[in-house]
Nucleic acid binder design. Structure first.
Length: 481
RNA sequence: GGUCCCAUCGACUAACGGUUAGGUCACCAGCCUUUCACGCUGGCAGUAGGGGUUCGAAUCCCCUUGGGAUCACCA
């Protein structure tokens, strides 16, 4: 049987990094086994729909390079891939459960349920739907139930969870999990608006879409017994379950917005490389080995296995992401990098520079920054003349005698025809030797005039990239300011 | 609180009963040096605690502790 997995997000906003990792693992697993990866949109909660959320989700997923074999957009033989378009299927199979006794109708209002819970809390018992005391098929009887339906009373469909015995299922990551039937609530399967809850829709879809492995976050572990029960009630084979460890905040709670960015789009917008981000995310909760940190997507596919996924949650600490990103920054092709940076430059109003020039600047600075857009801050002077001069740097390196030391050097520069960093270096050295001074003594004043900053790339390389005219203009600008 | 899951350096993790418990990030120091970086070398730092099982336990079992998830007509 060939592997079929799915990523099933709700269209309620942006793609969460935890969601990305789940999607990624599904994708890697499918590719690893030559199977299919499916995208299904779970929009059964009509009250939480968010405009454009689906498009947003798909954009983030595609940015990360996660491709689906079947999805709402691509289609496929098991569609539709949007749950709201499968309404009739849930209704039909919900009815089958009612017929077989695996589910029942309940007429309780929100107030009645609230009262029940309040009472339970007072009594110190666990909050759980009381099948024998509430208004449902069992307590009301056939007649009354029928007349209520005919009268148009709103109702929900609940799962008839066995009150004795235990439910067990196996999880690829966690092994055997056992829960007592009495501890499981009579889950609502169909809401009063007729839409199924996650539990029902998910099981029905996974079955009819031929899903072989359910790979999802650990937050679903507590409801998995209910799902197992549903598969059994339908007489369907259960898929393999794999519950991924959670991604955590620094305080170890489930990763949330409160403590930093969790939207994938935030990271793409900040300029992280997709390769680096995916690389980083993939290694949060799974490691093929421990002597390597950098993996291409193909290498991830080659080595991925669910058996090696960890059980414990992983803190989402982006310090290492910055390092991973820097590794990519230093290994990607210069031209590729220039093309990637171009849109960012344009957005910042930096135009009129050739791709070739941008590439040279990147190559010059790539070992000094971790994220490509940082170039605009770190090396702003490569795109405009210095707007200001670092005061402390001036104080330290521009003495009363500096000007008379520098002027003749500028004359030397003016006469250089081959404006390469080698020539600039050699000529400057010769000048220093002639004057009996150290290279240091002129390098800092030069840097000051050219960049205005104390930190930057090699001085002569920088000057070479900027070009002769630009450098001479900057000398003038500083001296005459 | 009930149920379930989990537990190796600050963080990510490796070690399928036998290692001086390894690597990476971060941090610190030194080297390199033309500033800042990169790089190189070294350092700091961990098996939550207690019982078993075993010749031998980070690893298997039990208890304790700690953390987390979940208990909705949300997914």
């Amino acid at each position: 049987m060939s592997v079929r997995v799915r990523f099933a997000p709700s269209p309620t906003g942006y793609l969460h990094v935890g969601g990305l990792r789940t999607a990624l693992y599904n994708f890697l697993f499918a590719r690893r086994h030559g199977g299919k990866c499916i995208l299904r949109i779970e929009d059964t909660d009509r009250t939480r729909l968010v405009e454009n959320a689906q498009a947003n989700l798909i954009e983030s997923l595609s940015w990360a390079g996660i491709e689906f074999d079947e999805s709402p957009e691509i289609g496929g033989e098991f569609g539709p891939y949007i749950q709201s378009e499968r309404f009739d299927l849930y209704k039909e199979y919900g009815n089958k459960l009612i017929e077989s006794g695996a589910a029942y109708l309940a007429f309780d209002t929100a107030e009645e349920l609230a009262a029940m819970r309040e009472q339970q809390q007072k009594a110190g018992t666990d909050p759980k739907y009381d099948r024998n005391a509430m208004r449902n098929q069992f307590t009301l009887g056939e007649e009354e139930t029928k007349s209520l339906i005919e009268a148009g009373s709103p109702y929900v469909v609940r799962m008839t969870v066995p009150t004795n015995g235990e439910i067990r299922f196996s999880d690829i990551i966690r092994g055997e999990v056992v829960v007592a039937g009495k501890d499981i609530d009579d889950q609502i399967l169909i809401k009063s608006d007729g839409f199924p809850t996650y539990h029902l829709a998910n099981v029905i879809d996974d079955h009819f879409m031929g899903i072989t492995h359910v790979i999802r976050g650990e937050e679903w572990l507590p409801s998995t017994p209910k799902h197992a029960l549903l598969y059994d009630a339908f007489g369907w084979e259960r898929p393999q379950f794999a519950h991924l460890p959670l991604l955590l905040n620094k305080d170890k709670s489930k990763l949330s917005k409160r403590q930093g960015s969790v939207a994938v789009e935030d990271f793409s917008e900040r300029g992280y490389f997709k390769e680096a981000f995916v690389n980083f995310i993939a290694l949060l909760g799974w490691n093929p080995t421990s002597d390597r940190e950098i993996f291409s997507i193909d290498e991830l596919i080659e080595t991925f296995s669910l058996e090696k996924v960890n059980k414990g949650g992983a803190v989402f600490d982006t310090q290492k992401l910055d390092w991973v990103n820097a590794q990519y920054l230093r290994s990607l092709e210069g031209q590729d990098l220039a093309e990637r940076l171009l849109p960012t430059l344009e957005k910042s109003g930096i135009t009129g520079f050739s791709l070739d020039y941008i590439e040279k600047v990147i190559l010059l600075m790539r070992e000094r920054i971790e994220i490509l857009p940082d170039l605009l801050v770190f090396a702003d002077y490569m795109f405009q003349k210095p707007q200001s001069y670092d005061a402390a740097y001036v104080l330290k390196h521009w003495k009363d005698t500096t000007l008379e030391l520098i002027r003749p050097l500028i004359d030397v520069f003016s006469n250089i025809a081959d404006w390469s960093h080698e020539t600039l270096h050699d000529e400057t050295m010769r000048y220093c030797e002639m004057k009996g001074i150290k290279l240091k003594d002129v390098i800092h004043p030069l840097r000051l005039m050219i960049t205005g900053k104390s930190a930057g790339a090699g001085m002569f390389e920088t000057m070479a990239v900027l070009g002769k005219d630009e450098c001479l203009e900057r000398f003038d600008l500083y001296i005459n300011k």
